[in-house]
Design a protein around this nucleic acid. Sequence first.
DNA 1: AATGAATGAGGTTTCATTCAT
DNA 2: TATGAATGAAACCTCATTCAT
Lengths: 215, 215, 215, 215
Amino acid sequence: MGVAERREREKQHRREHAVEAAMEIYNEEGYYSITMDKIAERAEISRAALYLYFKNKDEIFISAIMAYMDYFCSLLSDVYDRRDAIKETLLEELWGCFIKFHENDPVAFDASMFFHQNEAVRNLSPDLRNMLYKAGSNAVAYQHKITDYGVSQGIFIDCNPRILAEVIWSAFLGIMQVERSKGQITGKTHINPTRDIALEVLARGIKKKHKEENN
Amino acid sequence: MGVAERREREKQHRREHAVEAAMEIYNEEGYYSITMDKIAERAEISRAALYLYFKNKDEIFISAIMAYMDYFCSLLSDVYDRRDAIKETLLEELWGCFIKFHENDPVAFDASMFFHQNEAVRNLSPDLRNMLYKAGSNAVAYQHKITDYGVSQGIFIDCNPRILAEVIWSAFLGIMQVERSKGQITGKTHINPTRDIALEVLARGIKKKHKEENN
Amino acid sequence: MGVAERREREKQHRREHAVEAAMEIYNEEGYYSITMDKIAERAEISRAALYLYFKNKDEIFISAIMAYMDYFCSLLSDVYDRRDAIKETLLEELWGCFIKFHENDPVAFDASMFFHQNEAVRNLSPDLRNMLYKAGSNAVAYQHKITDYGVSQGIFIDCNPRILAEVIWSAFLGIMQVERSKGQITGKTHINPTRDIALEVLARGIKKKHKEENN
Amino acid sequence: MGVAERREREKQHRREHAVEAAMEIYNEEGYYSITMDKIAERAEISRAALYLYFKNKDEIFISAIMAYMDYFCSLLSDVYDRRDAIKETLLEELWGCFIKFHENDPVAFDASMFFHQNEAVRNLSPDLRNMLYKAGSNAVAYQHKITDYGVSQGIFIDCNPRILAEVIWSAFLGIMQVERSKGQITGKTHINPTRDIALEVLARGIKKKHKEENN
DNA sequence: AATGAATGAGGTTTCATTCAT
DNA sequence: TATGAATGAAACCTCATTCAT
């Protein structure tokens, strides 16, 4: 029993090692430079051993993404649960989910986005593509629920909540990508002023002003 | 000389054929599915001949992007030149540049963005990466000039124009990518409402209200 | 002692399980699709444990074949023992051995033939190849004895009994293989008419007609 | 033109080289020991070059088989065309087709049979499997026509010609396989007496005796 | 100038077998 | 005794690029 348990934990460790290795390579050289060879070398196991833990190359990557999407969903879920208490700062809280998601592990965030927007998804096996799609849908659904609430409560401007959610998402994505692309060239990432001003812009545009309301 | 000229023109034709072929493949199958073989077949040239016109595979793609970036710069330049006349709708005009850039050739737009944001850029030869960077900088510089003008004229909120330019750019990028990613999954692209509401949000957030100013 | 005995019996059980598993896979997917993994899974043993019972992969298969060859020899031996009583129908009885051998376990029959005719035998270890060869020789020897008797008794045409035995053997083999190959393509196996007519042809060709003799 | 022609011929040469190499390996080590590496080495080209001439590994082998099946069909077709002239020795002529087929290139004959009877066919791509199937059907059709004629003319015993064709085919196959398997073990192949006696047996069994007819 | 031919380098996956526990 | 874990060796295939003609 103790044996089985320890084994399971070790196995889990190695899986994680492999995933970390893959992520490091992703970060340093990009998705299409990931090879089983490189992962194996970094994780200090044989190439063949990787196939003990993962069915194929894609699964290594996807399994990391899934975990991060779950984390993101939990953030959103938390905000939604506290919606009545945080009514006044709903947009900021929502924005905070993205920020936390990103800051918790920027590389994993990148990777998640990479797979949601990139052509790479086309070449995935149907199984994995489906998993990915479901995880994505889940997160999107939570966002809709939050913006829906914001609109219904008169906190956000009166427009289709789905589209509103997309605008916020888009803005965040765009900012992160611009930052990332600059980071690639200059070597520095995370220029926070952009994010702050973006939130300000969003806030001005999305939130209904009380004054406006009172008129 | 007439001969040399004609030759040059023919050469130009083939280059264009190759570039178009590469773009078609990019659109249909994605960047990482482009192969010299496929380009050669579509362009009806031999694979070896491609190396007469381009130094290597990447150059084919990059040369297409360069041309489109030039077009984008010309759009921005035009707006900048008319800045005094269009002061009132500066944001809309700027936004319009993005829209035109995108609608003129969505595939080329995609491709441009792909290379600016994607890891692929890291694996480019320094030469090409430099060209790309310059073309990008050029466009960015124009955007800065426009937002700079907007801030200085009290049309936009008072914040770092560079960051403002990035926010606009980010928003547009984000929207396009969300649309594209949805297109990949649902088969439908270009849900205009998102773009419209995004502009509205941006406008509310970025433009200084006269009322606000007069107070 | 009781313990040792029980252990031995258990060991024997597991060996049999493994052999059965191997045969099932052979039947469903073919010899070259047999893997230690699949055998282990079906036999509900660990892959490593297979190496406790068998020296290597081939031995599993071969040991099954050996058992079936023994059964075949016993059939032939029985016919030979009754040779005087069944003189009149010697060919039919001989033929019947093949039929029984085949029908008792068509898969094992296939497997036996597979190894006797196939290239696979070349890649066996000398040890195993030898065992196989001896088992085969044994069966062949019995057949020779029977045809020898047939010729000597004037029941069969007067020709080298060894060759006669081979002709019968060949005919049966050929029929089975044609049937099997048709089975692979049409999904139906065992078209008995072929076998029946083959026997008729053989009988006409091999058996001396009494009339002929009396003339 | 001369150039293109010569190129084509050279290409043909190399294809043949590759096929020969594959066949040699087949002969020496068996089908499942054929690897692209070994073929390339023997044919004195690079592994990659093989993919210029053949789509994949199987195609190398199958293309050889197809050629031999065509040759076999031509033999059968010739016999059928001369059927009226050779009525008396129809069985011998038919048998002769098998003999020639086999003797023209025993290895190729083996290979043909291998693919028709072996499990290997299951793992073929549908395309190749289809080609193989058609070539096989063609040969079978010819055989049926010949036996059909034999029965209708009262040369062969009165039974289903399709089955008769199969019996002949089976007999030949069986003989060849027994010979081959002996060859594998003793190193000698082609024990002609077996074939001769087999023909005699078949002839006695299949051909209607004039005496029998006159009675 | 143009191209068919050739290939080196690299990538993913499979599997029989060994070994520490 | 039994097994989960690990791996070396090998197989197939792809593709950007070079080269002789």
